[in-house]
Design a binder for these strands. Structure first.
Lengths: 107, 107
DNA sequence: GGCTTATTCAACCGTTTGGTTGACGATAAC
DNA sequence: GTTATCGTCAACCAAACGGTTGAATAAGCC
């Protein structure tokens, strides 16, 4: 009974996972490198990554012994469209977005 | 440590709550009427409504003995902006885009 | 082969979530 | 004044969440 929107929104509900997505906006990353800035175990990050994967928000590909994490922004489209049904929100303003990210990362 | 985005996305992660928001898109509703189509207790719906309220997604006002629930779509804006940082999903509003360009060129 | 690095697995733990039921305080209706 | 309706509260429950540790698997390095 769990649909994709449940998984996507629930995944986005955690600040660690949103931070991970933001990091992946820069570039693909190995699991260890994703974990680096966080004050929690590698295993915890690994779990967050599987949650993001199940939601379709990232994909993981193993090359050699390192597993690369890649952002899959298309997974956000369905959620975005759903939200858009409640009104159209300001045209994309990347400056605002930058400020949000900075505010979030400061925590 | 919990910020607004956490609350909004977490609130949207439940299908019952998304259905409630959709219902409220039509019109304001009393708690009992919100609960009506769902196969769960009134108390359960009441809890969902307080979660939506804390996320700012709805507001509740008591008139007489009935409590009216009202959609507050503005609460979605911040989340929408965050998501749009990952790509442009919405059909571009060309008028707004024009204005944006003009504003930029004036600087 | 043997060490090191990368990642997950398994078990555990405390907290939160999403639901139930029954009692309760208001307000409205008769 | 009694009764019915609206909604929340409190206690409880099972399951999921977010984290921890330690062992296990897999791949690269010397």
């Amino acid at each position: 009974m769990e649909n994709r929107l449940d998984l996507v929104f629930a995944a986005l509900g955690d600040p660690t996972r949103r931070a991970i997505l933001t990091m992946l906006l820069e570039d693909d990353m190995a699991v260890t490198d994703v974990a680096d800035p966080f004050a929690m175990s590698l295993a915890a990050i690994s779990k967050h990554l599987t949650i993001l994967t199940r939601a379709g928000l990232i994909s993981q590909e193993k090359r050699g012994r390192v597993k690369w994490c890649k952002l899959e922004p298309d997974a956000l489209r369905e959620a975005s469209v759903w939200m858009q049904g409640f009104g159209q929100f300001e045209p994309v303003n990347l400056d605002d977005f930058e400020r949000f990210l900075e505010a979030e990362l400061r925590e």
